[in-house]
Design a protein around this nucleic acid. Structure first.
Length: 481
DNA sequence: TGAAATGTTGGGGCG
DNA sequence: ACGCCCCAACATTTC
């Protein structure tokens, strides 16, 4: 239908990469391409995510420029901007990789209808999940439990091999105007907390692969057990790269699958690592089938749960002032680096939801704003999991003891000392529960409780009892369902 | 991808 | 020699 050299627009979203980008690759096979990034005016993204996304866009723009391609940046309503760009450039086609969040899907359906009425070819591609959510069902219904979901996925599907970066690419004859990234306000100014993020991360597609290789070198052979030790460099830290699509799940899958063939000794660790990729997949499939996941508990009886309204406790949790070192260290790692070790995410989440009985949505919102890897499906599914109201959730009565968890997973106190400088001098035997340390020990370490470091906001044993009592009030329905 | 309470077992001290 | 008690160590149940 369309002329072979007609222009194709390629929309970039949370897929800021050149390799394994099916929309880009297929468009480049046909003829000239114009990469476009649209920023919604109703954008709900978090601040840390924007910092990363803005930097990533800058890097993407530079890499496209090296290949002779522009990147057109525009803000506003896609249904207004996209037809305008199509008309101005005479484009014959618009390609994108599919989104799976409710808002994104709704917008993409609208765009597809609109563009087709204009006679434009529209194609969407699978690039951001291993398998499309509607293609992995059991008897026509979505899986609600992870293990059968993942086992069946491995048994039934052969994941596509990643595509290469398309080279060379043909540029459009002329380029419509682009906005300036600096005008989007995605880089914080007052105060400029991005300096702290920048000290911890290198953004972009090349950095994603450097991180992957660093993980293979220093973490992978410890992964199966070591992934639970927040003081050790045994986890991949690939989550922000995945969240912004600088690396794709298929690239990760195949890289590690091939590695398992070469290094049979690593097989156990690779299986454990790829299982975590499975949790991401599971969360996205859940979100696709249950679009209320970010706001509403999957177990409806949790709508009646007697949560507490306690802004002071929420604030103390957010700022790492609960008096429980493992919780506070985690919240400070999050605040300073935009990321938190997954074991610690579970501990701090359990503390907020069970010890403080603050609604999980409050924790979800804070993570959404502060995580550079903020991911709608992972974030909402994981909070529901910890809160006990998810499909395949931990039972509500599974309450983490922050002291035991710390002793088990940070036995030397390395993680505490890294993120809580006031406690650095405390001996390891007392670093996880400083309120129980003898006065001379505290004095020698230069710690005055209530001054250098808070006393516990709540007594964990009492808080646990109160949480279980609160759960009793909705338990009848839980057992029924 | 918990923790605490409760139950069971077996060794050793002791009358 | 024997029974009793204590309690650590481990297992099971319950929340």
């Amino acid at each position: 239908m369309s002329h072979p050299t007609a222009l194709t627009l390629v929309l970039f979203r949370n897929d800021l990469r050149l390799a394994d980008h099916p929309a880009l690759w297929h468009a480049a096979q046909k003829g000239p391409i114009l990469p476009v990034y649209l920023r919604s005016t109703a954008d709900q993204s978090g601040l840390a995510w924007r910092w990363w996304q803005g930097n990533s866009l800058q890097i993407l723009k530079a890499r496209l420029a090296e290949r002779g391609l522009p990147l057109v940046l525009r803000s506003g309503q896609a249904r207004e901007i996209l037809p305008e760009i199509v008309r101005r450039t005479g484009a014959a086609a618009v390609y994108w990789n599919r989104r799976y969040d409710p808002e994104g899907m709704r917008e993409d359906e609208e765009l597809k209808r609109l563009l087709k009425t204009m006679g434009i070819e529209v194609r969407s591609f699978a690039g951001n999940l291993l398998v499309e959510p509607w293609e992995h069902l059991r008897e026509g219904r979505p899986y609600r439990v992870f293990t059968p979901f993942w086992k069946a996925m491995l048994a039934r599907h052969q994941f596509a091999r990643p595509l290469p970066e398309p080279t060379p690419c043909t540029a459009p004859a002329d380029t419509p105007k682009s906005e300036d990234l600096a005008d989007w306000g995605w880089q914080p100014r007052h105060p400029d907390w991005s300096l702290s993020l920048a000290a911890h991360w290198r953004v972009g597609e090349a950095a994603a692969w450097e991180r992957l290789h660093a993980f293979v070198d220093e973490g992978l052979t410890h992964y199966a057990e070591g992934r639970n030790l927040p003081g050790k460099p045994y986890v991949s830290r690939l989550s922000p790269y995945l969240a912004h699509g600088e690396i794709s799940p298929r690239q990760i899958w195949w890289h590690f699958s091939d590695l398992a063939q070469e290094q049979p000794g690593s097989h156990r660790h690779i299986e454990a690592f790829l299982r975590e990729l499975g949790w991401r997949e599971f969360s996205w499939h859940l979100l696709y089938h249950f679009p209320d996941l970010p706001r509403e508990p999957l177990r409806p009886e949790f709508g009646q749960f007697p949560w507490r309204d306690d802004p002071a406790a929420l604030r103390a949790w957010q700022r790492g002032r609960t008096g429980y070192p493992i919780v506070d260290a985690g919240m400070r790692e999050l605040w300073q680096s935009g990321w938190m070790h997954n074991r610690v995410r579970m501990i701090v989440a359990s503390f907020l939801v069970k010890d403080l009985r603050v609604p999980w949505q409050e924790g979800e919102a804070w993570f959404w704003d502060t995580l550079v890897d903020a991911d709608l499906a992972n974030n909402s599914a994981s909070w529901q999991w910890v809160a006990g109201c998810g499909a395949d959730a931990a039972p509500y009565f599974r309450v983490f003891n922050p002291v035991l968890q710390a002793e088990k997973f940070d036995p030397d106190g390395d993680y505490i000392r890294k993120w809580l400088p006031p406690l650095r001098q405390l001996p390891t035997a007392h670093i996880h529960a400083p309120w129980e340390a003898p006065a001379p020990v505290l004095e020698k370490a230069g710690v005055t409780l209530g001054k250098d470091y808070p006393r516990p906001l709540v007594d964990h044993h009492q808080a646990r009892e109160a949480a279980l009592a609160a759960w009793e009030t909705i338990r009848r329905q839980t057992e029924g369902g």
